[in-house]
Nucleic acid binder design. Structure first.
Lengths: 183, 183, 183, 183
DNA sequence: TATGAATGAGTATTCATTCAT
DNA sequence: TATGAATGAATACTCATTCAT
């Protein structure tokens, strides 16, 4: 998995043949197939692991956010999303752009699912302070926006993004979401 | 191009070999290569055509939006984005998810670019009515959000989405963006 | 044929596809096939024409040589061979090295045949002055040597070959052959 | 390599596709590419092997010739050249005539190079007995002649060539070269 | 007579997967 | 359990040739 991730990052999906992966991993192709039934499974594992890494990194902060007032909570959640995308941006990008979502890859679990559940949970708890009634819809709107904002910012505009600009982005994202939630 | 699009939609990218495309198109592979220098070029053409179709469909409405007051303009823009994603949702999805962004496909022009320019232009014209100063950032935030919202809604939740739900989505998207811009 | 020769010289046999030839010739592939039944026939025609050009250039001089005494005759014949290889050395080289001798190309008539006949004829006429009895063999030995010498010199050592060096080569070739013939 | 050589000899270069080679070799195409990076490399290997075989066969005799007096040395060298061309005449011919000298094949090492070096070395050692001063030129003249003579004789006139005729050829070649060197 | 779009068999090469050792 | 040579279906692409216009 380590080798696969490294190749994906450094050489791209094209170069990630099973033989190359085995070579970089320092094992034989045969061994690869002893632990992963197919290349697809291996890629899925890499994706899962990447998602796990992200979750590991942000879980505590996200939990922390649950008890904060809306403004602060949202800001934290946006900040956490940025942090998540910064765990391994290049891998994240390759995973998102170069790997054809075909077969089992089609429905690969993403970080978003957990993020979404937590967010909805938060809205539920703070229902009184908010001006939204369809929590499902509201979660979808907020999580989708935050994810898209941070994804695009980190993966496609990283050159343009000083830490100051990143601060502005977090600010803007927070305003976007809070404005929506509190009306 | 028609055959390619059809295969992409019905069988997915990995079935779209040049021989299969030719077969479905009812021509020989040779003929394919008389009109497209490579498979990549063919795919690019399909993407471009899809984008053209979208632009065709929404251009007038988008132009119309330019002269509307903020609330109405944003609503129209969100509605237009939904419409755009409904032109050929399955193809749109395959294009977005299954085609590896490698080589010339990496920078394939998307509908978003034009959309973004128009949006920024609108913000510039209505600067007085808005509470944003960094138009670049504001455009990024709004366009990214609208695009993500409609993309996910149409392409991943289409089953859940009655026309009523779609109306709610437009409403929500509008509130999100207007709140941000005027909030 | 002109176009074919030009492509062979400038771009090599690899690039000499019938379409490219037609394009350079300013006609359609269809027309090509109105005058030549196959690509092979076209190449044969080019080879034949090249041989004709060579013969044209050297025929008179060769005829002239027939009446000269051995030493002078041989020198002339060597000189003529050099001249022959200089008619269009690059084409000559491509013809010799890049075109696979397959099919009808296998037995393509070369300049050598006529050269050989003339040489043998000369030997026959000057039989008395010579110390060879098998004229067939003698012709073979002389013509083969002269041809190989000039071919290699002109086509592979042309950089090393000043006109002075070429003079030396002619001198050497002459000495080689005369020595053999007169013992 | 064995399969490639066999196909070249029996069916010619244009039948020597990688798939056919693999088939004849009794392995899969994939295996072919485990040992040779490209078809070109495979052909180069076949050529090299053929050259090695030739060298193997004649090296000792050539070494032996070095210490012989001119007349005997030259005769041995001519005889050796004939022997060399008889190692695998058909393959030799296909290699020489059917394989387009393009790419890495352009400069494929031939037996001639070593032969040339040895010959020049001999001339240098026996300089006193000879009437040539430019050893470079003399070597070129002699080696080229011997090579051409034997090549043409063995590869194009093999039907005409009884062993008696071959003896005559060696005799003639020897006389040609010795006459030139001692002339 | 000229055209050139259409053809499709054929090419070299790749790579996920297997299995005897 | 690990190996890596062997596999062969599949791929993108070419090009001599044809034939309806």
């Amino acid at each position: 998995m380590e080798a696969t991730a490294r190749i994906l990052v450094r050489e791209g999906f094209d170069k990630a043949s099973t033989n190359r992966i085995a070579e970089v991993a320092g094992v034989s192709v045969g061994s690869l197939y002893q632990y992963f039934p197919s290349k697809e499974a291996l890629v899925v594992a890499v994706i899962d692991r990447h998602n796990q890494e992200i979750v590991q990194v942000v879980r505590d902060e996200l939990a922390e956010a649950m008890s904060l007032p809306v403004q602060k909570a949202v800001r934290k959640m946006v900040a956490v999303a940025v942090k998540a995308h910064r765990v391994n941006p290049t891998l994240h990008r390759v995973l998102a752009e170069q790997i054809p979502r075909v077969g089992k890859l089609e429905d690969v679990e993403t970080f978003n699912r957990e993020y979404y559940a937590l967010f909805k949970n938060y809205l539920d708890k703070h229902r009184d302070e908010l001006r939204v009634d369809d929590l499902e819809l509201a979660s979808f709107v907020c999580v989708t926006s935050i994810e898209a904002l941070t994804h695009n910012a980190v993966l496609h505009h990283s050159k343009t993004l000083s830490s100051g600009a990143m601060e502005s982005l977090i600010e803007a994202g927070t305003r976007l979401v809070v404005g929506y939630l509190k009306g």
